[in-house]
């Protein structure tokens, strides 16, 4: 048996209405609620369930980002993770850099599984899991809605455009989570107290031997999306049909 690594990203909470700053330099983050990326919460829940079935030795949660991401790692520890590592980086982290960080940690911890969210709800890139699998030269099972472990193999059901696809992969492997994989547990108060005693280490890219990219993809500006305006209201099906005909849609 071996550990499971889980990625935890600190993002603007999904319920916050994100607004672009007037100067186009980013989005408003002052006083905005921050949370664990929802897909990462699902990843952690899946890892915890595997450990609870005695199929993993421990669950290690890893975040790459600002000092404040320790809050999200503490939440992950309260959910049940055994220990946490923050790779402290100021400023945005490109998915390729994140994958290089995970590769270093995979070489150190020799996990059977790395479970990541299929995407983070801030940059919506959806790349890190696939990139890690490429660098690690191991299988990837993206958009997982069901994960069944069978010794040195896993059978994964994936949510794809055509419906559901099932693949079989050898372990170790990277799995990325879709919404319907599980429903993450709620945290109980005693767990929050217990989490304060669990180990949370902090390291840096330099300590891990990951180079800071000098020539990545640069974000030049942020803009608010074009808005649609409210249209006409009709009072019954017949009027609706007439309005559709008037617009030339039918």
């Amino acid at each position: 048996m071996s550990p499971i690594l889980v990625g935890i990203k600190r993002v603007i909470d999904y319920s916050v209405r994100v607004r672009v700053k007037p100067d186009g330099s980013g989005v408003v983050t002052d006083g905005v609620k921050m949370s664990i990326n929802p897909f990462d919460e699902i990843a952690l829940e899946e890892a915890l369930r595997i450990k609870e079935r005695n199929l993993a030795t421990e669950v290690i949660v890893i975040s790459i980002g600002a000092h404040e991401a320790q809050q999200q790692l503490r939440t992950a520890l309260a959910m049940g993770a055994d220990r946490a590592l923050l790779v402290q980086v100021d400023g945005p982290v490109e998915p390729l850099t994140a994958a290089q960080v995970f590769l270093k940690l995979v070489q150190k911890h020799q996990p059977q599984l790395v479970i990541l969210g299929k995407q983070a709800i801030d940059d919506d890139n959806g790349q890190t899991g696939q990139m890690l699998a490429a660098l690690w030269e191991r299988p990837q099972a993206t958009y997982a809605s069901k994960l069944e472990l069978d010794g040195a193999r896993a059978r994964v059901t994936r949510e794809v455009d055509a419906g559901l696809e099932t693949i079989e992969i050898d372990l170790p492997a990277v799995v990325t989570t879709d919404l319907r994989l599980n429903e993450p547990r709620y945290i109980k108060l005693p767990d929050i107290m217990k989490a304060k005693k669990k180990p949370l280490d902090v390291t840096t890219l330099a300590e891990l031997g990951v180079a800071t990219p000098t020539q990545g993809i640069r974000t030049l500006k942020f803009e608010a999306p074009p808005t649609r305006s409210r249209g006409v209201m009709v009072k019954d099906a017949a009027e609706l049909l007439a309005a559709l005909q008037q617009r030339g849609v039918l």
């Binding site: 989005v27 640069r218 974000t219 942020f222 608010a224 999306p225």
Partner: peptide, 30 residues
């Protein structure tokens, strides 16, 4: 190399626009 996900508009051979934050913002990337 990195990847540009979800290109929604092309400004030039190296400059593109894409949605972030569930399309609540559009970024120009190079």
């Amino acid at each position: 190399v990195g990847q540009i996900s979800d290109v929604m508009a092309v400004d030039s051979a190296y400059r593109f626009r894409r949605p972030v934050y569930a399309s609540n913002a559009i970024i120009t990337v190079e």
